[in-house]
């Protein structure tokens, strides 16, 4: 499957995403430059973590205006798959490709930890390789991951199944103590209404190798790859 990883000035996890996709998962992944417009035929776009444009104004607020994001927005509108990780999630919210916003952590502290998240909806292109209710261990590292959206929007999102990941404790229960950043409803990852755009604060690309602490991030990538294979077989069949 062809992937495109966007590199913004200030991106940090772009090379790790490429490594996870190419070396670990055997995918055809290309780096895309923020000033370019071409997506290189990618079937899934990754907006990686980092501090694009120095986090000036608000995290993700400036990246939204880069030339490549105009192409990404068109790609998403046509149903193309887009996954935003950490700063990528912030960019997708600022670009209005996902609902809500990410604010300063409740603690005001940068959190760097491994968290447990529960898969809330496994019937999506980003979670289909997991089970609903499955617990994933994934790393987080962010200062502004507190997910916020209007109450009525949150209710509608929950009803539509747009909340894909929630912070929970080891037993799988959401609680204040298990919420690392104060996110409303312990939300760790959300999809758009079309379920082709997904943003999450945890880093699946840092969790694809046992030697680096865990492989649960593979669930997310395997889900997308499984969908890509299905699409390819539809085309060839």
């Amino acid at each position: 499957m062809k992937w495109g990883v966007v590199r913004f000035p200030g991106s940090l996890d772009d090379a790790d995403a490429i490594h996870a996709l190419r070396e670990v998962l055997g995918q055809d992944a290309a780096m895309l430059w923020h000033k370019d417009e071409a997506l290189g035929g990618a079937e899934c776009i990754v907006l990686p973590g980092g501090f694009s444009y120095g986090d000036y104004l608000r995290c993700g607020a400036i990246a939204r205006f880069s030339p490549i994001m105009q192409s990404v927005a068109r790609f998403a509108a046509e149903g193309g798959l887009v996954i935003g990780i950490c700063n990528g999630f912030q960019i997708l919210c600022e670009a209005h490709l996902l609902p809500g916003a990410l604010m300063r952590n409740r603690s005001l502290a940068f959190v760097c930890d491994v968290v447990t998240v529960r898969v809330e909806n496994a019937a999506t292109p980003f979670t289909r390789a997991a089970r609903t209710g499955e617990i994933l261990r994934l790393p987080i590292k962010h200062g502004e991951g507190c997910y916020v959206a209007p109450q009525e929007e949150l209710r509608a999102m929950e009803e539509r199944g747009q909340v894909l990941l929630r912070y929970v404790d080891e037993a799988g229960v959401a609680s204040d103590a298990a919420n690392p950043n104060g996110s409303m409803r312990s939300i760790a990852g959300v999809a758009n209404q079309g379920f082709n755009v997904f943003g999450l604060m945890p880093h699946p690309e840092h969790a694809v190798e046992k030697a680096l602490g865990g492989e649960d991030g593979r669930r997310i990538f395997a889900s997308i790859i499984a969908g890509g294979a299905r699409a390819a077989s539809r085309v060839s069949g």
Binding site: L57, R58, A61, C93, G100, A101, M103, A149, P150
Partner: peptide
């Protein structure tokens, strides 16, 4: 369009 995020 830029200086304020209407969500927050």
């Amino acid at each position: 369009q830029l200086l304020a995020n209407p969500n927050i």
